[in-house]
Design a protein around this nucleic acid. Structure first.
Lengths: 283, 283
DNA sequence: CCCCGGCTTCCATCGGGCGGAAGCCGTCGG
DNA sequence: CCGACGGCTTCCGCCCGATGGAAGCCGGGG
């Protein structure tokens, strides 16, 4: 960034493209430097990645550490702290879903013997709220809190199809990131598929993220029939199961889950869902 | 807080106990107002609870919302955003554990038919990283990211027993919060129990949080035999199972999990744990 | 030995965060 | 109908504390 402006110290002001971040923005910049590929960073790395002077980074990191937002690893590097996780679990949608959903997901999984996902929409992304892997240990792509663009996953398509028209237009107008040869990147195709999803209530996406798999997604509705989440099953393309074979179980589970959610909101204080009405395929 | 200082406006300065928070501190104050019992708040509630003027709260909340740390509910209130959850899942210990642990926990659970917990230490608290409930739907006490003081849970005792001496002394010197009649609140008793845990490698706590249940905890070790987590089983007191009946399975699972973790660290880049060596009670 | 990179502490300055105030909106009650 | 109220949003001038430069510390390596 600062490649010898030394020659003309006079114009360093002009070139240095002032920093218009607010104090709060700088704090968030620090948090922003951590991602999947940067779990642990030294202070100087943070300062570089966040584009903050070392002294500022030092002070902010210190305050964040005191609060628990960051923690110091044994090797002296910094990482996101458990306090952030604790705070994150207070997100209301996800809190409610994680309360009732696991049982339904487990039943569905044992019925179809495949990976099962429950997701909600956050802006233009789909976020995993709960997932069950067939052979646990492969949490790779579907980590809790994991994000994908809406157009790349079955649950994303379901959520996009039922999102406010404004959101749909924004997504259709924005560049559609490609992950495989089969990722749908053409707005017109996407528009057509969305219409189809709206008509049928089911989204089927083939190899849009991972080659060799396809996913089937359906909506989960909360009180007043609003779509609050999406449920999906991911299958191997050369596997034994077809869309039509899993669809009944998927739909039944989604509807049972919807019913369980629907009962939860009349009272403002979450009036215990009592017994999860009907759980198809219950053990 | 401001009970009619109006009479003597002159001394409002003196009484008003200046606010020594930094800008970053105020940002964190805003996040701090959200907890288990305050999932959604209006702007004014936030401003009151965080002790910020309305205009300041307004601006900070706006910035946090733009970043995704907060979101606006349909009713116009504010809540923690999914971005926080996403960030929280980057916490390294928890990330590694959640990658490999689920399979082991599932095996253990199906072997003992009881609730199973995996926890790590964060300061003077124990934090749940993963848990399996016998009858799903009762995630109540053991929500992911949930916190308890170290002296109140079986996993906490295990982690405290293996924590640096400094931590142990701090906890022993601090007031030990009581939850039930059986919560251990006497430092001397705690010290004795810790010694016992260190000697035997097992912690058994009866009704220290919830009446009618007891829990058995054992350490989980990572590379270089450092204790990185604790594994526990929670049983009904009048149930059929005794400590001695679950201990073998618990120990075997903890050791298998330790081995799986141990293999993961030689290379600095997490060199895939390949196959989870031996999983006792595997299905 | 010195140099280098990373970290920590200190301090004067100045820009932007702060809070007061005014105005907007919807709701309730007289 | 109007007025009061609570909650929210916007605006703006002042002052203070965040900022970043600089100096000093530590450890490793050439």
């Amino acid at each position: 960034m600062p490649p010898s402006t030394g020659d003309h110290p006079a114009l360093h002001e002009a070139l240095a493209a002032e920093d218009h971040r607010t104090a709060a923005g700088r704090v968030l910049s620090v948090l922003d430097v951590f991602d999947q590929d940067h779990l642990e960073l030294t202070l100087s790395e943070i300062s570089r990645r966040a584009d903050l002077t070392l002294s500022t980074a030092h002070r902010l990191v210190g305050e964040l550490r005191d609060w628990g937002a960051l923690e110091r690893t044994t090797e002296g590097r910094y990482a996101v702290g458990l306090r952030v996780l604790e705070l994150g679990t207070l997100e209301p949608q996800m809190l409610q879903l994680r309360d009732v959903a696991p049982a339904y997901l487990a039943d569905l999984q044992s019925a179809v013997k495949a990976n099962v996902h429950l997701s909600v929409r956050d802006g233009h992304d789909v976020v995993y709220v709960e997932s069950l892997q067939r052979h646990s240990g492969a949490h790779v792509l579907s980590r809790l809190g994991g994000r994908w663009p809406l157009h790349t996953t079955a649950t994303g398509m379901v959520l996009l199809a039922s999102a406010p028209a404004a959101v749909r237009q924004e997504v259709l107008a924005s560049p559609l990131k490609r992950y495989t040869d089969h990722t749908i990147t053409d707005p017109d195709t996407l528009r057509r598929m969305l219409a189809e999803v709206q008509r049928t209530g089911v989204a089927v996406l083939r190899e849009t993220i991972t080659l060799g798999t396809f996913a089937v997604g359906v909506p989960v509705r909360g009180p007043s029939d609003r779509v609050v989440a999406a449920l999906s099953v991911t299958l191997k393309i050369d596997g034994s199961l077809t869309v039509h074979q899993v669809l009944p179980a998927l739909n039944a589970t989604a509807r049972a889950l919807s019913r369980a959610l629907g009962t939860a909101t009349p009272g403002t204080s979450p009036s215990r869902p009592l017994g999860p009405s009907v759980r198809p395929f219950a053990v």
